[in-house]
Computed example of a mutant assay.
Amino acid sequence: MGHSKRLQIQIQRRTSLKSCADIYFLIDGSGSIYPNDFQDMKVFMNEMISMFQVSANGVRFGVVQYESIPQTEFTISQYNSVKQLKEAVRVIQQLGGGTNTGDALRYMKSLFVKAARDSVPKLLIVITDGESQDQVTKAAEELRQEGIIIYAIGVKNAVKKELKDIAGTEDRMFFVNDFDSLKLIKHDIVQDILNSTWMSCKNMKADIILLVDSSESIHPVDFQKMKDFMQLIVNRSDIGSDKVQIGLLQFSSEPQEEFQLNQYGSKADLRKAISGIRPIKSGTMTGKALTFASSYFDEPKGGRSRVKQYLIVITDGEAQDIVREPAETIREKGITIYAIGVLHANNSQLVEIAGSQDRVFFEDNFDSLTFLEKEILFEICNLEDCK
């Protein structure tokens, strides 16, 4: 799968989640911007807005336009649907005038404070076409100290050093030669926003069991790549008896316990245990393995009834038995199943296991697993509604 295609799929999957953020656009409406360029900027904002799940409790957008003085076009609490937001952006009229970006940045501080939601990421996307007529560094720094993530987009005559001062890092600084090219950086910015607002599962409590296929069709090199993927899941999780617990089962013709959920309470111990597993190398009895896995979420085997529980199944081939019923039994217990299929896995069976295509990941090869660890954990971290 190509990088750009994968990026689009990641963005579609991530922005369809119950993620939440407060995002303001701060747009330059000074006289140096031609009317058709100002229109391109509005199109760019509407295309970005369309990529998110907008709601009062989800992702919210507001727009401030500035020249010599800033002007609120609409606040983040004003419109709660993509349709309303796009119409509000469409009718924005260009102000004309100077370019006091520093004053505009200072203006943003109170707007974010007024509508703040606890633990919800706050982002500011600044778009300008020229050098500011006042100082930007201190004003931008004060916003970042409030936890606001700033993206600085420069067009035409914007000054790159100033953009870096606004964003605080080159990683969130973007430059294009004309306003029509804004559409070319749209996906990159959204991807970065999604990565920035994902807090690596902090404060999350979950029981995660990995159920991995080690049948004879899996090459030793690929089995190692599967182990590497599991190590990445461990590294990204906040491990502990009152945080994230991880258990591991493998299967072939018969299932086999490697370790229960409460067996290891540290990343180091989990990594060591994963490193030591050896493949079984026989058939692919996935249904039997699912039946076996069900009890591992129960309290006698380390499961916690009051936390969210997840089963991540990885397989490279078609099951030689029935998977629908045992998978349904697990899901009926309130356990969410993710099914990862590689190479010759059967998509219909993967859907039967996960219960929905949304929770199926299909990869062409085992190398692609390295892209997936963030994807799956992002979903797990964002399944709860915004506070």
Rank of each mutant, 00 (worst) to 15 (best):
D242M: 08
Y264M: 08
D321E: 12
K288A: 12
G240H: 05
L163N: 03
A104Q: 06
G303F: 11
S237I: 01
V244T: 09
P300F: 12
N36V: 04
Q135G: 01
L123K: 10
V351R: 11
F61Q: 07
Q145Y: 08
I27S: 07
Q260W: 09
I353L: 09
F259C: 04
H219Q: 10
Q256N: 09
L369P: 00
I127N: 08
K5T: 00
I314V: 14
S81T: 15
K301I: 02
Q93T: 05
V360S: 02
I314L: 15
D222F: 04
R324W: 11
Q78F: 12
D385K: 11
Q231F: 05
P70T: 03
Y34L: 13
K18I: 03
Y264K: 11
F292L: 06
N203F: 09
D358K: 15
I380M: 11
S294P: 01
S275F: 01
K374T: 04
K183S: 07
M285Q: 13
D316L: 02
S50I: 02
H219Y: 14
I150T: 13
K288R: 13
Y296R: 15
D171K: 15
D118Y: 10
D228V: 03
K186A: 04
R236E: 13
I380L: 04
S282P: 02
V323Y: 10
Y24A: 02
L211G: 04
A206W: 07
